[in-house]
């Protein structure tokens, strides 16, 4: 009697572990697969919690002591239905996301993006400061002319950095605007088939 239960519990472990692993992914489709596995793992766990297997739980067919516990099975049925509905909804969401942004990536929240932008800006500033330091060193060691050349190089790097940063911010902003505008977003990927 312990045999089947151990196999059941091992299956639960594998399902839950893979489910959790997939839920940590960025792509919503993988998360959905993770949700399915996790849900099934927990359902099997409830089945294992229902105790030893027995005869079918039909009234009047077999004695009450011989039948298996019907309650976990009812609960699993309910949970399966709920998971099914939610998976369908998540798939629709992934599709919608692909329509709007071209992928189904779960993106960072606004606060995180702001923090990332700030860190990037600070890193760029640090790089420039380092280079300015180098220019000063060159100036001191090799004379004014070499220093002037290095300084011009630095200026163009700084411009490049700033341009790059601005471009990325603009792209982010445009992507967001495109995503928020249902009319524009709809014909970017698939014409007028949906909605």
């Amino acid at each position: 009697m312990t045999g089947p239960n151990v196999i059941l519990l091992a299956t639960v472990t594998v399902l839950v572990a893979t489910g959790v692993f997939l839920m940590l992914e960025r792509s919503l489709t993988r998360i959905i697969v993770g949700v399915i596995l996790l849900g099934n793992g927990v359902n099997l766990f409830i089945l294992a919690a229902g105790g030893p297997t027995g005869r079918p739980p039909l009234l009047g067919f077999s004695s009450v002591s011989a039948i298996s516990d019907p309650l976990p099975q009812i609960m699993i049925l309910t949970a399966i239905v709920i998971t099914l509905a939610l998976v369908a909804f998540l798939l629709a969401l992934a599709h919608r996301s692909r329509q709007l942004t071209g992928d189904d990536e779960v993106r960072d929240d606004e606060e995180d993006r702001r923090v990332i932008a700030r860190v990037e800006r600070e890193l760029a500033r640090d790089r420039l400061r380092e280079q300015a330091e180098r220019v000063r060193r060159i100036q001191a060691e090799e004379g004014r002319r070499a220093g002037w050349r290095a300084w011009r190089g630095l200026r163009s790097t700084a411009r490049g950095e700033r341009r790059d940063f601005r471009r990325r911010m603009r792209e982010e902003w445009e992507r967001q605007m495109a995503a928020d505008d249902p009319e524009r977003a709809m014909d970017t990927t698939m014409g007028e088939d949906v909605q």
Binding site: R107, D109, D180
Partner: peptide
């Protein structure tokens, strides 16, 4: 309405809520 911001916010919300439901079911 399915706008970009809502779809993005919805993804996080739904996945987190699902996780909490699974923990509760467990």
């Amino acid at each position: 309405g399915g706008t970009g911001a809502r779809v993005r916010a919805g993804m996080t919300y739904i996945v987190v809520s699902l996780l909490s439901s699974v923990v509760f079911l467990l």
